[in-house]
Design a protein around this nucleic acid. Structure first.
Lengths: 157, 157
DNA sequence: TTTTATTGCTTGCCGAGACAAGTACCCCGG
DNA sequence: CCGGGGTACTTGTCTCGGCAAGCAATAAAA
């Protein structure tokens, strides 16, 4: 059970160590930088942007609160508050589910869709400048496959 | 100035898009998973662990508050509070600088060093299981170089 | 030397988000 | 039809961490 005894405790190689430390830096720095860019450029923080984005891609531009939380990697209560913020700006509205009286759909409004389109260039630019531009000449698909395995290992207990 | 007009607004390719989304997932998921592992295994959250780690690697096991904040990618005030938490547990103590009456050194105590050694296996295990194990057969050094460029682009304005 | 600007750290205040408790609703067995 | 357990979301409460203001101490200027 105790993690310490599951493995023979071979330390990381120096390459592994260097990689891990650099990744830690990127993990702490990259979201801050992109959020900073977007917030100062178009006044739409990253979490809000991603939430609108997920809605815009959903059928009928609507998603159950729990599904939206899942998509955005947020707790359900966290998403309640994000949607509350977006609702006060008129970008999203909450509509009671027809089939299930317990459930609510977050629905992207036309204003919300317009807002998303306005913010998109800013997002795109930030992602390019901070991230994608630095991947010239590497096999992105291979990276994606590896990262998918990592993401899988992180969602399991 | 406006990011939207700097570039011709070429959208991301589908490979770039997929990569970015997977990375977002890893960025939100991986620290949570490692922190979860460490907190439940040895009661030492990731931020605290990394702080002790940086101290242990510094000459004389001590570092100015600002240097420590920088190393851990935290604001100075954030580090004040982390060190305060560690100090109440006796893992770190704050010592006034001799040369500069304004400055303080965070010094790793013997208890702190012992605590770090205790937590290390748990950290190592989490990092392997959640991250490193999934990089078989890829060129880690290449990844590290790319990530260093990204990190550089994230610390610049 | 006295004044002023700068630096290093801490504290007050606030927003974000996680967890747990609460509320409303569904569904199933009787 | 009713009661009890499960589900969907919200709200109360907490911790974390960022920013800006405050407080010393140093450095620079007068």
């Amino acid at each position: 059970m105790c993690a310490a005894t599951q493995e023979p405790l071979r330390p990381l190689t120096s390459e592994e160590e260097a990689f891990m430390r650099t990744l830690v830096k990127v993990i702490t720095t990259l979201p801050r930088a992109i959020d900073h860019d977007m917030t100062h450029d178009r006044q739409l923080p990253l979490v809000e942007y991603l939430t609108l984005m997920h809605l815009s891609e959903a059928p009928d531009r609507r998603l159950r609160m729990s599904a939206l939380a899942e998509a955005a990697d947020l707790s359900v209560s966290g998403m309640t508050r994000v949607v509350a913020r977006l609702e006060t700006q008129g970008l999203v509205k909450r509509v009671k589910c027809v089939n299930d009286g317990r459930g609510w759909n977050a629905v992207l409004t036309d204003d919300g869709y317009a807002r998303l389109q306005t913010a998109w260039p800013s997002h795109l630019n930030a992602v390019r400048r901070r991230l994608i531009d630095h991947f010239d000449g590497v096999d992105l698909d291979e990276y994606t496959r590896v990262l998918q395995r990592v993401a899988g290992a992180c969602s399991s207990r």
